[in-house]
Simulated assay, not measured.
Amino acid sequence: MSDFKVCTLNVNGARDVGKRACIYELLKLKKVNVAMLQETHSDTLNGRDWRREWDGEVVLSALSSTSAGVAVLFARGFIPKSHTVEERVKGRLLVVRANYELFNLVFINVYAPNSGPARVQFLNEHSAVLSFRERKRDFISLKQWWDCGKADIKQLCLQYTLNVSRDIIKSMRDLEMEIVELQSFAESTGNPGCIEDLKSKKAIFSCWVLEHRGRWSGPDSRALP
């Protein structure tokens, strides 16, 4: 199979058999291969019903019958040859590693807590799951793992460069506005201190323009008043 369809859905409780039937019908109607559901409110007894009703493979992680609970549902035509299950946070963070004939997939189903301390602890655990070293076993070869790592590093560098460029441009625009306002104030008052401050800011701005010429599309210091 060259492509497949994955969906994620917060079901806001699915203990009712009628509601589960609607969910199953929706997934089949949308031709979803893998569904990741949150807030299933499932438990051990209820889990048997899920497995009996769904025409495929069901992986559940339950917390209580009134809160949380996550599930990964594989359609009948997309059941993996084998899979491993890891409940990193019961009812909230479920990792399913699925092995197919030609590829391996990792599905991470997340339902974070609302409260502050619990949320911080949960996000720390979530970060550990997504870390590059932790994912090494998910690749079929060391080369594939390293190639993916290089792509991640490249993306991180690009994002960092983008953020830095954005910050620099904002700072340059702010300085430009300060120069314009200071120029107007110096002309109206003739204050020597303002004139010296203006010269200093213009010099800084000129250096920034020369250093970041590729990023800056505004006027240089010579075009300022």
Results as ranks from 00 to 15, higher is better:
residue 5 K to L: 12
residue 13 G to E: 02
residue 40 T to Y: 00
residue 17 V to I: 15
residue 197 D to C: 14
residue 143 K to I: 06
residue 188 S to V: 08
residue 35 A to F: 01
residue 30 K to D: 05
residue 145 W to I: 01
residue 93 L to N: 00
residue 186 A to S: 09
residue 62 A to V: 09
residue 20 R to M: 02
residue 119 R to K: 14
residue 185 F to G: 04
residue 62 A to L: 08
residue 38 Q to Y: 01
residue 145 W to H: 07
residue 205 F to C: 03
residue 200 S to R: 14
residue 139 F to R: 00
residue 185 F to R: 12
residue 219 P to H: 05
residue 72 V to C: 03
residue 34 V to H: 00
residue 97 R to I: 11
residue 168 I to M: 07
residue 40 T to A: 00
residue 41 H to Q: 07
residue 154 K to H: 13
residue 79 I to D: 01
residue 125 E to F: 09
residue 225 P to N: 08
residue 121 Q to W: 15
residue 74 F to S: 00
residue 10 N to Q: 05
residue 132 F to E: 07
residue 190 G to P: 04
residue 210 L to S: 15
residue 222 R to E: 14
residue 114 N to E: 12
residue 84 T to D: 08
residue 96 V to T: 02
residue 144 Q to V: 11
residue 32 V to S: 01
residue 198 L to W: 02
residue 52 R to C: 09
residue 7 C to V: 13
residue 64 S to A: 09
residue 129 V to F: 02
residue 24 Y to P: 00
residue 120 V to F: 08
residue 127 S to A: 14
residue 36 M to K: 00
residue 50 W to H: 02
residue 139 F to Q: 01
residue 49 D to T: 12
residue 211 E to A: 15
residue 107 F to V: 04
residue 177 M to N: 14
residue 31 K to H: 11
residue 74 F to C: 02
residue 45 L to A: 15
residue 18 G to Y: 00
residue 225 P to H: 06
residue 155 Q to C: 13
residue 175 L to E: 05
residue 166 R to N: 11
residue 179 I to G: 00
residue 181 E to R: 15
residue 63 L to V: 13
residue 67 S to I: 14
residue 15 R to G: 08
residue 64 S to L: 07
residue 102 L to H: 12
residue 195 I to C: 05
residue 32 V to K: 00
residue 166 R to C: 10
residue 103 F to P: 02
residue 99 N to Y: 12
residue 83 H to Y: 13
residue 41 H to M: 04
residue 203 A to C: 11
residue 222 R to M: 14
residue 170 K to A: 13
residue 137 R to G: 12
residue 89 V to A: 07
residue 81 K to M: 10
residue 185 F to L: 14
residue 111 Y to C: 03
residue 205 F to N: 01
residue 70 V to M: 03
residue 133 R to A: 11
residue 78 F to Q: 01
residue 155 Q to D: 13
residue 97 R to F: 10
residue 115 S to V: 12
residue 18 G to E: 00
residue 219 P to V: 07
residue 22 C to Y: 04
residue 29 L to D: 07
residue 188 S to F: 07
residue 70 V to H: 00
residue 225 P to G: 10
residue 174 D to L: 09
residue 211 E to C: 12
residue 83 H to G: 04
residue 179 I to H: 03
residue 68 A to H: 09
residue 199 K to W: 08
residue 212 H to T: 05
residue 72 V to T: 04
residue 115 S to E: 14
residue 138 D to P: 05
residue 29 L to S: 09
residue 42 S to N: 12
residue 170 K to C: 12
residue 4 F to C: 04
residue 220 D to M: 10
residue 48 R to P: 06
residue 60 L to A: 03
residue 108 I to Q: 01
residue 204 I to M: 10
residue 165 S to V: 07
residue 140 I to H: 10
residue 12 N to V: 09
residue 104 N to T: 13
residue 74 F to Q: 01
residue 44 T to E: 14
residue 21 A to M: 08
residue 121 Q to A: 15
residue 164 V to C: 08
residue 192 P to V: 06
residue 124 N to P: 06
residue 119 R to W: 07
residue 177 M to H: 14
residue 79 I to L: 06
residue 129 V to W: 02
residue 13 G to R: 04
residue 77 G to I: 02
residue 63 L to M: 15
residue 46 N to Y: 10
residue 136 K to C: 05
residue 22 C to N: 11
residue 40 T to L: 01
residue 65 S to V: 08
